[in-house]
Design a protein around this nucleic acid. Structure first.
Length: 294
RNA sequence: GGUGCCAUAGCUCAGUUGGUAGAGCAACGGACUGAAAAUCCGUGUGUCCGUGGUUCAAUUCCACGUGGCACCA
């Protein structure tokens, strides 16, 4: 869509830094396949939280929330505004409104529950959820094993139903978020995506992915751009098929991002080329906010 | 040149003992509280290749044509 380039443009105008809101660009080993900003771009504008973790590390929306809040308290001593850019909606919402706190989950508990799911299927874990947390059972998507497993993990760890941790409260922050979304014609978006993937291949995505093959079981590598190359390296599909799949999966992800942000009525939508208009919009918002005396 | 098989959704293919059709993938829409580039849900009007014939009725049967594939020359 052109989020990164727009963010760099705006960061220049506001003389500020960018915080990366992308769940896969945090991994230092995943560079080409996540289109992490280039060293040249990073030299122009300071980017935070890109390439700061290993694929072997556990990372999630809550850790991101914590890290960004710490970072922001630091940045706001020097900057009036900070730009956060990326497509990971849950991560952005965690920063802007917070997510409820859960206790950490023991690896063995997680493994045990996954094994039950693997061996006895969805019905088995659904039944467990019905007993452990009927409230959540009636509320959640029962076809989605990840949701069920998550709830069971927390219930198992604490002896309390998962739903008792869900307050739905929006946390107050000491900053105001001005949200800007970008969208453009599908045909053009898809052209951009196809071109971007071709460029990744020219830049050595195959080699990067091949070097990460030993980690293919890790969550970080359950990512389009990598998993398709793994299929190729295993001889299951041709390289052309892999590239086509990467393009397709990237397109589908772009649509899912739109679905997420469209739900947020606080987002103001622009064409990615409207940098001037976006700058004006943000300036006005800041001004209104200051007049309101906040 | 001859013979046989095939032609149905964007793609791969089911199917209709004759009453105008449905799966997977794609596409589109949606959901989303520590795996989120993850995971999950919903949406199927298409000259059923063309023309003619048989029939109350043809995408289905028959003939011819067109295109593809295979085999024989």
């Amino acid at each position: 869509m052109g989020k990164s380039a727009l963010a760099i443009d705006l960061a220049g105008r506001f003389d500020t830094d960018i915080i990366n809101a992308d769940s896969r660009q945090v991994y230092k080993e995943m560079c080409i396949g996540t289109a992490r900003p280039s060293p040249a771009q990073m030299a122009v504008v300071r980017h935070h939280l890109a390439g700061v973790r290993s694929v072997r590390d556990r990372y999630n929306a809550s850790l991101f929330e914590t890290e960004v809040l710490e970072l922001l308290s630091l940045l706001y001593t020097r900057k009036d505004a900070v730009i956060m850019a990326g497509g990971s909606g849950l991560y952005i919402d965690a920063v802007c409104g917070g997510i409820d706190e859960f206790p950490p989950v023991d690896r063995r508990v997680r493994e045990k529950l996954r094994e039950i799911h693997r061996e006895r299927g969805l019905e088995a874990i659904k039944l467990m959820l019905l007993q452990a947390d009927p409230e959540y059972y009636h509320k959640t998507d029962l076809n989605n094993p990840m949701r069920i497993l998550k709830a069971l993990e927390i219930t198992e760890m604490t002896g309390r139903p998962y739903s008792s941790f869900l307050t739905g409260e929006k946390k107050t922050r000491n900053f105001t978020a001005i949200k800007v979304g970008v969208d453009l014609e599908r045909s053009q978006l898809y052209d951009n995506i196809n071109r971007r993937v071709d460029l990744m291949m020219e830049s050595g995505l195959l080699e990067e992915a091949a070097s990460l093959m030993p980690y293919k079981g890790l969550n970080a590598l359950n990512t389009f751009g990598y998993k398709e190359i793994f299929l190729y390296l295993e001889g299951r599909i041709s390289l052309d098929e892999a590239v086509d799949l990467i393009k397709r999966h990237t397109r589908q992800y772009a649509r899912r991002q739109l679905t997420w942000f469209r739900r947020d009525k606080g987002v103001r939508w622009f064409h990615p080329g409207e940098a001037d208009e976006i700058y004006e919009y943000v300036l006005n918002k800041i001004e209104q906010h200051e007049l309101a005396g906040d």
